[in-house]
């Protein structure tokens, strides 16, 4: 589905009510949120929305012309099924604008119980081709798919052209080098993964220890990295640690960088991308403010005059300041092959 004249939507994260309001005030077309349990992929302590906060947030967004999407994008097992089903019912009754779902069973339930509710396929659904998106469209009538951060620009274009539904892509934020929904590294080490628990490298498994060699970071006792005094120690997300392969110690999987596709906006618009998603429900209201403001300005500039669009230095500077690892990359989008 290619509609390159359509205005790309800005979809911003919110981990709490103040962040939601800030995103709305700074130009988010839609804000995505989660409930306070393992039904969403940012299941962190102190984050997310209870019933009253969700009600207030939805009312605020709707008053200001923004939409609210609820992410119920982890994979329920039989023992927890009811919690996911309740989350779908709860969101539907709150009058949200769309559910972001990953699990086939939950999607089947939502489509049957709430046939008028708009469904989006979550990035956790790992759909990397039009053929897999078609499965969810054919069976559950999804109206949008969020595609994993592993696709190149050329592949995004091709998916947009051939997909039965509009495509949402990640524009900015922390970068998963693995295909979302298909990474079990976290549960291999800690017993909890994004699929099962809604968190990667969960804080409860993290250990920090000062040693003579430096600051050690461990996850359930597995050494993820060791930082000398001159190095800044980031959160020990396990794919971003330094490991030893054939006597070389290096970031064997991923450098701790952030994704930033701002320079590619005209091409994404041309490809017919329907929405740009910002990662970071776990980030502070200050992050949400910077990122929403800058991305609103960039999307507007690109929409007005795509041919002469150029990211402004002040935008990039503002984004660099809130980036993880203070280094940004185009991720897979710039890959030349295939």
């Amino acid at each position: 589905m290619n509609d390159s004249n359509r205005k790309m939507e800005l979809v911003c994260p919110a981990g709490n009510l103040p962040s939601l309001k800030i995103a709305v005030n700074n130009g988010a077309d839609a804000v995505y949120i989660g409930f306070k349990d393992d039904t969403n992929a940012r299941h962190f302590a102190g984050l997310n929305f209870n019933d009253q906060r969700a009600r207030d947030g939805i009312a605020y967004a709707h008053q200001h012309g923004s939409k609210v999407f609820v992410a119920i994008n982890t994979y329920p097992q039989p023992s927890g099924w009811q919690r996911w089903q309740d989350a779908v019912d709860h969101a539907a009754q709150l009058g949200v604008d769309a559910l972001i779902l990953a699990d086939i069973g939950i999607m089947d339930y939502a489509a049957e119980r709430w046939p008028d509710l708009r469904l989006h396929l979550s990035v956790q659904g790992s759909a990397t081709s039009q053929e897999s998106i078609d499965f969810y469209h054919r069976n559950f009538g999804i109206q949008r798919a969020v595609v994993p951060r592993v696709l190149s620009l050329k592949q995004i274009k091709s998916v947009c052209e051939n997909s039965p539904v509009p495509i949402e892509v990640f524009g900015f934020g922390s970068l998963c080098v693995m295909v979302e929904g298909r990474c079990l590294l976290s549960s291999y080490v800690t017993g909890q993964s994004p699929n099962t628990f809604g968190a990667c490298s969960p804080a409860s498994a993290v250990q920090w220890k000062e040693t003579d060699a430096g600051l050690e970071t461990r996850l359930n006792n597995v050494l993820i990295d060791c930082h000398t005094k001159d190095e800044s120690a980031g959160y020990p997300t396990l794919c971003k640690g330094r490991f030893k392969v054939n006597n070389n110690t290096y970031h064997a999987m991923e450098e701790p960088t952030s994704l930033n596709t701002m320079a590619l906006l005209p091409e994404l618009q041309q490809a017919g991308v329907a929405a740009i998603k910002i990662e970071g429900r776990q980030r502070s209201p200050a992050y949400i403010e910077q990122v929403s403001k800058v991305w609103r300005a960039a999307l507007d500039a690109c929409q007005r005059d795509p041919e002469n669009y150029q990211p402004q230095a002040s935008w990039l500077e503002a984004l660099e300041q809130v980036s993880e690892g203070t280094q940004t990359t185009l991720g897979a989008y710039h890959r030349p092959w295939q």
Partner: peptide, 11 residues
């Protein structure tokens, strides 16, 4: 990802 019975039944 077949994590529950409803998914298994649908497939």
């Amino acid at each position: 990802n077949i994590y529950n019975s409803r998914t298994l039944q649908l497939l």
